[in-house]
Design a protein around this nucleic acid. Structure first.
Length: 596
RNA sequence: GCCUUGGUAGCUCAGUUGGAUAGAGCAACUGCCUUCUAAGCAGUAGGUCAUGGGUUCGAAUCCCGUCCAGGGUACCA
């Protein structure tokens, strides 16, 4: 039980004993004491004034006296206005330290046999273009959320739905046929996904030009968009694909395989992976059958032009198309099929979709449709709705080439990490490969932390003109602190200093206590991150912890300390901080270098 | 139009179920490396928490209005 909970329960008792009144846990506000004030835990007494019929100060005195007497861990108290500040005994903090030092899973709940199975869908790329910064945010959030959910005692299946069919890939296919001259990743030395993306852009260029030409000849813009030769050709390819035309399927497979090999490299670089991959080309058929079943069971209805619709107006939503008049599937159709297949494949307790907030409405509708189709889990799906990454120029658009390419960005970051290390004269002692690994670790640490430290629900700004920081509230700052701790521990080992698990210090400094308090908050941070689906909570926790450690490190010697007990205590403290940092950052998918 | 999300320092962001004097980093300016890594530490400066009301002992936080911005809104995913 955490100290907050203990104090909370004791306070409820106190109020009952002293004033004969029942209060609920919500009414007892327990918080960490402000730094400028002495004390560790603070209770806000204002809510009890009505019960005590006394002034805030006297009420606080009553409670303070009671708590000091009844709760072992409370040493003393002080009162400032309506705030009761409790001093928690040193032994409590030292116990926490021992727990974090000896227990490898401190703060982490291991999944057991009766754990819930949570499936997390993330990434979900289209196969007609390479990944960009927006996808990076999705991938990092998806991976991190999976780890956080796992750390809260759940089993997790990470899944990816690959949108491998549809008009978008046909556009790239057509452009490659027309203007590709048989170019391949090998012949062009281009990464497969970039090559296919090049033809997607190429398509759009020609398409726009054709529209402009038609409009000049007097066609309306809307008609021109439908009559341009390129789009007609792309649609023809889609029709042939659905008719299983051999040559078209062949081309589709070839170009998709290029994209996949490209994605694999990017996924590997980002350090994300999946337990199960679904392909839209499989799931849309299942979805179509489900819609037709719904039609037969009169859950849905058909219009005169043969299109199939759901009427959701009774649920505050609109009419939603599920099959087009020509019988082909839409986005929603495929998601219904994918959901069905997943729940057939796994015993899923909770489904989490990591998809951008532009699709909030889509998931509201999906939950409703699955429910109508008789799937009890439908309405409980959770749409992890994250914000867009914006550029100073606005939204990223692949078609128009106004994107920050994922591979380029990572490559650029590694270069910065390498240059910076050289400039600082770091890592000169490492061999080429070790050094390169570290540069990669630092670069990705900077990128991942930059993305994950912000509240996932909010839009965030990225300015390509300014490089991502390596100083201050950043991934490398945290990695650096970890490397410092490792360095101290290496030196201790060199001096044959053996760390003793028994702590025997008489006094601890204010800085040391602050650090212990921070460590004690780790389990709560992991839980809170799980409840709120927020890697940012972990990121900010790690930053606060590391900042605290650096202050301690600056003010106190560890190996230079003359008193053996104090040195031992500080070694245990540093080790624990290192462990917590590593565990926390691991939840974000950020690796920690031994030296930097 | 309707639905929805947001607006906190020059910039990028924190800010717990409403609590004490609204916090970090970057950028600017000052100090601190002959002792464990200066990718660090300490300090200065920078705020009408978009705006006007309301609720309350207490509001960046809750409610209402207004302004601004993003997203969605029946055959794009």
């Amino acid at each position: 039980m955490s100290i907050e909970t203990i104090i909370q329960k004791a306070t409820i008792e106190a109020v009952k004993t002293l004033y004969g009144a029942e209060v609920t846990e919500n009414q007892v506000q327990v918080q960490n004491t402000r730094k400028e004030v002495s004390g560790d835990i603070t209770i806000v007494v204002f809510p009890f004034l009505r019960l005590s019929r006394k002034s805030p100060e006297l009420t606080a005195e009553d409670l303070g006296t009671y708590l000091v007497e009844k709760v072992d861990m409370v040493d003393s108290y002080s009162v400032i206005k309506g705030f009761l500040n409790l001093e928690i005994s040193r032994n409590y903090w030292l116990d926490i330290l021992m727990e974090s030092y000896t227990y490898d899973n401190f703060g982490i709940a291991e999944p057991g046999d009766d754990s819930k199975l949570v499936m997390v869908e993330y990434s979900s790329p289209n196969t007609n273009k390479p990944l960009h910064l927006g996808h990076i945010r999705n991938n990092l959030l998806g991976y991190s959320i999976s780890e956080i959910v796992k750390a809260n005692g759940n089993k997790v299946v990470k899944t990816n739905i690959v949108n491998d069919r549809g008009i978008h890939i046909c556009k790239s296919m057509y452009a490659w046929q027309q203007w590709g001259n048989g170019e391949t990743p090998e012949s062009s030395s281009m990464k497969g996904d970039h090559l296919v993306g090049k033809y997607y852009v190429e398509f759009d260029k020609h398409y726009k030009a054709e529209i402009a030409e038609l409009v000049e000849k007097g066609t309306s813009k809307e008609d021109a968009e439908n009559q341009a030769p390129s789009i007609i050709a792309a649609r023809e390819l889609l029709r042939k694909w659905e008719a299983k035309d051999e040559a078209t399927i062949e081309l589709w497979k070839k170009m998709n395989s290029w994209v996949y090999s490209g994605f694999d490299v990017t996924y590997k670089t980002l350090g994300v992976d999946f337990d199960k991959i679904y392909y839209e080309s499989d799931t849309y058929i299942v979805g179509r059958d489900e819609v037709l079943r719904g039609l037969a069971e009169k859950i849905f209805y058909q219009k005169e032009d043969n299109s199939v619709w759901a009427d959701l107006s009774g649920d505050g939503l609109d009419q939603k198309i599920l099959l087009r008049s020509d019988g082909t599937s839409v986005y929603m159709t495929q998601d219904i099929g994918t959901a069905k297949m997943r729940f057939n494949d796994y015993t899923i307790d909770k489904m989490v979709y990591v998809v951008g907030n532009e699709q909030n409405y889509h998931f509201q509708v999906l939950a409703n449709l699955l429910d109508k189709l008789g799937y009890s889990w439908g309405k409980d799906l959770y749409h992890f709705s994250y914000g867009m990454v914006e550029l100073p120029s606005g939204k990223m658009k692949s078609r128009e080439g106004t994107v920050v390419d994922a591979d380029d960005l990572v490559e650029g970051m590694i270069t910065v990490a390498r240059d910076m290390s050289a400039e600082l004269g770091k890592l000169d002692s490492l061999t080429g490969k070790e050094a390169e690994d570290t540069f990669r670790m630092i670069a990705l640490g900077a990128l991942k932390y930059f993305i994950l430290k912000v509240d996932p629900r909010k839009n965030m700004m990225f300015n390509p003109e300014e490089s991502i920081d390596f100083n201050g509230n950043t991934g490398p700052f945290i990695q650096y602190t970890y490397a410092r701790i490792k360095s101290v521990l290496r030196k201790a080992a060199e001096k044959d200093i053996v760390i003793n698990e028994k702590i025997a210090v008489q006094d601890i400094s204010a800085k040391e206590k602050e650090l212990l308090k921070r460590i004690s908050l780790f389990p709560a941070a992991v839980q809170e991150a799980g409840v709120n689906y927020s890697p940012a909570i972990i990121a900010n926790y790690c930053y606060e912890l590391v900042k605290e450690f650096n202050q301690f490190y600056h003010d106190h010697f560890i190996l230079g300390e003359a008193d053996a007990d104090i040195m031992n205590f500080r070694l245990v403290l540093a080790t624990s901080v290192g462990k917590v940092i590593q565990k926390g950052m691991n939840l974000l998918g950020i690796e920690m270098p031994e030296r930097m």
